[in-house]
Simulated assay, not measured.
Amino acid sequence: MRRSELQRAVAHEFGARGDALIADLTLSTLGHRTAAEALAEGEPAGEIWLALCEEMDVPLSRRHGAGRIEPGRR
């Protein structure tokens, strides 16, 4: 997952509160860092997405492939 895909996935799943979650929510599986801190420290975007999903109880069915542009929509 790329950073842009992470941003799209967060916006799609969490809407207007997505930016606040990235900046403020500490993620236990990432050493109690925020997603923004983890990104700045080089953590892969896909791992951050999964950690955010786990923390926010996003169903497994909405985690895989999130944020990717559909073929033909690029």
Rank of each mutant, 00 (worst) to 15 (best):
L39V: 06
L30K: 03
L25S: 08
I48F: 04
E37F: 01
A66F: 07
E5L: 05
A51G: 00
E37T: 09
G46D: 02
G31Y: 01
A38S: 13
H32G: 00
G65H: 02
A23E: 14
R17D: 11
T29M: 09
M56H: 08
A16W: 00
G18E: 03
A20M: 14
S28P: 09
A23H: 11
R33E: 04
A23G: 12
A23L: 15
I22W: 01
R68M: 06
R63T: 03
D57G: 06
H32L: 05
H32Y: 01
A16R: 05
E70S: 12
M1T: 12
W49E: 00
T29S: 09
R33L: 08
V58L: 15
L52I: 13
G72N: 00
T26D: 02
A11R: 01
A51S: 04
L50F: 08
A23M: 12
R3K: 15
M56N: 13
P71K: 12
E13R: 05
L27E: 03
L27N: 01
G31M: 05
T26W: 07
G67F: 07
A11T: 07
R8G: 11
H12R: 12
E54P: 04
G65K: 02
E43C: 14
R68T: 14
E13F: 02
E70V: 14
R2K: 15
D24I: 09
A38F: 08
A40G: 15
A23C: 11
L50V: 05
A36L: 14
S4V: 06
G72L: 00
S28F: 09
S28E: 11
D57L: 05
E43N: 13
R3D: 15
A16Q: 08
A35R: 07
T26M: 10
G42M: 14
G42Q: 13
L6Q: 04
L6E: 01
H64P: 08
I69W: 10
L6W: 01
R63C: 07
R33Y: 00
M56Y: 07
D57S: 10
R3E: 15
I22V: 11
A11F: 04
R73S: 13
